[in-house]
Amino acid sequence: MSGQRIDRQTTRIAGLILLAVLLGGCVNATVDEMTYNEPVAGIGESSVVILGRRHKPDYDTEFDFIECIGDHIHSGDPSIEVINEIAFINQFYPWFEPRTAPLQPQTIDRLLQLPPVAARFDEMKLEYMIWIDGNTENTESTGSMSCGIGPGVAGCFGFGTWGTESEYEATIWDFTDKVEVGRVSAQTSGQNYMPAVVVPIPIIAPVQGTACDSLGDQLLEYLSAFH
């Protein structure tokens, strides 16, 4: 009797694993774009910096997400020089800290009144400053899993699932004219699964990675002459 119950439970878990494998990796993505004054011939020898917003109280835009977008743009068009975010923030300390970072392109003029800041910007030949605001969060989770340990035996049994949502907006500032020249946003969501029959197997939806690719593609299209 109890053997039959275990068989039925195992079949149910196996069904869920199959379902999870079929659904796993499914990510919904929505991308919006509104850009002006596209550099049709590309940005030449100038450089671009991509910075995350970190002044909101409840979240920080992740450093690794900014790095992912920079890598995506540079790998799509190696002629575009993307300045490393942390190196940039350190070189301009304390003018790009959460407390002091400019929120409007017009306020850059105030920074340029400081001679050492203006000189460093000149050295960098910065053409575009791109601000990314947003983050990735896990949402509702359901399911249950129990794990046990005994002499020579350990394992887990059960099934868990949770959602992940990303929402990012990139604001492009033309550094020469000190104006905003575009906004690109990406919203992605997906469902993650964790079936466990002895060993838990996480099936993670690449929600943040998809947001990075979506936003990176749009920015590459804007900045590159070849896309």
């Binding site: 300390y93 304390p94 800290e97 959460p98 407390r99 002091t100």
Partner: peptide, 13 residues
């Protein structure tokens, strides 16, 4: 470390 950097930014400004 972020708080120290913020203290410096606040002090400078």
């Amino acid at each position: 470390v972020v708080a120290l950097r913020d203290a410096g930014a606040h002090f400078v400004t």
